[in-house]
Design a protein around this nucleic acid. Sequence first.
DNA 1: CTGAAAGCGCTAACAC
DNA 2: GTGTTAGCGCTTTCAG
Lengths: 354, 354
Amino acid sequence: MKRKSVTSRDVAKLAGVSQSAVSRSFSPDAKVAEKTRKKVMAAARELGYRPNSIARSLITRSSRTIAVVTYSLENPFYSFMLEKASRYFQQQGYHLQLFFAPSDNGFDTVIDDIIRSQVEGVLMLAITLDSTQAKEVADFGIPCVVINRTVNFDGISQVGSDNHSGGYWAGHYLASLGHRRIAYIAGLPNSSTDLQRKAGFLEGLAKDGLTCHAVEIGNYRYADACHATRRLFASLPSPDALFCANDLMAIAAIDTLRHEFGLSVPEDVSIIGFDDVPMAAWPSHSLTTLKQPVEFMASKATELLMAQINQVDTAPENIMLPVTPMLRSSTRRSIHHSKKSLKELSDAHHRSAR
Amino acid sequence: MKRKSVTSRDVAKLAGVSQSAVSRSFSPDAKVAEKTRKKVMAAARELGYRPNSIARSLITRSSRTIAVVTYSLENPFYSFMLEKASRYFQQQGYHLQLFFAPSDNGFDTVIDDIIRSQVEGVLMLAITLDSTQAKEVADFGIPCVVINRTVNFDGISQVGSDNHSGGYWAGHYLASLGHRRIAYIAGLPNSSTDLQRKAGFLEGLAKDGLTCHAVEIGNYRYADACHATRRLFASLPSPDALFCANDLMAIAAIDTLRHEFGLSVPEDVSIIGFDDVPMAAWPSHSLTTLKQPVEFMASKATELLMAQINQVDTAPENIMLPVTPMLRSSTRRSIHHSKKSLKELSDAHHRSAR
DNA sequence: CTGAAAGCGCTAACAC
DNA sequence: GTGTTAGCGCTTTCAG
């Protein structure tokens, strides 16, 4: 069934016009007599001709493709972003090339691949670029915007949200609720988001004269956060509040505490997340969290990228959007102490330590 | 900073070799003297040269790109699939072009776009193709596999799971638990998965002499399923069990019932979903569901597509994988009646009807 | 092993 | 308006 590919030349022959007439007929804004275009279209339909956009890209030197690179779609925050951005670019007549960062090293290979592909722009979702890598794409004149990661290089735009303030709010708020053993479940070690959220959190704690009770790493993943929670509550005194570097981990913590430790959230432990993914609002978890303006971030990032693509001289921007505390019911309402005695907590601890 | 694009010709000049020598040096399996390749590579590095893969595609007539089209990433089932498939193709040296089906019509435009792009294969995630559309891509000799949707055309491969049996199991199992008012929350109307799951479900019910208590449409989406649940429980007698065409909707139903109607799952209402997405196993919902072998489906689909790309004569296959009931705790254990009286149910109903 | 030459399928001047 | 011509940057015979 594989038909020999039919070219504009074939169509031209059938339609009795020149090859360039065919080309023109398929360009929306070209001067062609309506009559010619009709003839061409008829012939094209008969032969099943479609313009080869690779050839087109080669000569126009524009691929009308943008690359999106991400490291995982487990967090709905990023799959939402991806969908949002994709639809936007698609609407603008761009194609989207999707890359996943290899879990091992080999990210340079991906960059190389992207450059060879002649994409007109790159959108990085939560991808940490070192300055060599950043310089590499910038030197090639490929517009690039990084979402949710700070990059140590001026030539690249970034859009993110105010992680530090968010962390600060979380720390301060938990302290103001009367919590005194406040722990942290960290995201990906050394990711800028984690660093900033944590730093803000520690400051917020410090403002109330507190220090962080304990830290465990959850890598921004549900399963890892379950383990982190177990470690956190394996020794006494256990935390009475938790700040988790994203919602997915906060949800994991809630689930683990409720179902493995028999603890209540927020009665025994208050929990705050970060992102405000859709499921944070679901009544099953009703998670207090810091809302990143995901929709706005996506549109800002895509528009920024488009601007840089369309006007070569657009300067890279560094956009930091505010986060909004979403008070829900994973944090207790006011100062009071756990309804469970220390004895009970200890029992819960041993129960779960089978 | 935008450097004039450097071509193999530039490299050749600097290295003092012919342009074709440069080309050869960048082809992994070409006969070039090691010495020449060294010279070329040095020159290339100096100039920052990267082969233009568009030009390469044009002449080799192979884009090494496959298109993935999906309609939404809200369901983690599909974002998981997407990630899985992407990583696989990336590993095989293929690029991935991502398309979202426009919510309005306009899907033919996407198909046209895909054909023009000269992709070597198409993976459709939950995309309903009519036979005209299917024929269109098949006629162009583009291998295509459709995941989780039946297509009415022989030329295209499909991989899905046994929706009918899954539905049958759900219907029969709920009946065997003693439920008598079993309702259905439907997915996307007229999607093959919904049709098949529903048909199986009705048969499973019929086997026990039951009919479906009520049906509402949830479009496979969380928010829509919340509304569907409200409608289902707005009138008495309300259902005592629910089969939802996917997990996302089942979770929505659980949340709505528990938090808006004050009903218990599974004590008052048993609920079964479909897919077994990761969060179905989270203890917060512990959803009884029908597991689709998502990992296997993804690998089967990708391998099938690869086979068709590599050997032109590979016949399209139609693969149906078995589903597995995952018994968790959103269904009650054995036959007994709701602990709530009809009076209480009525109260709950009025309470929620503010 | 290497260079010269011939395109891949298309767009974009340029004359007519 | 339309055809003619010259490439886009690369791979691939084909001689040497």
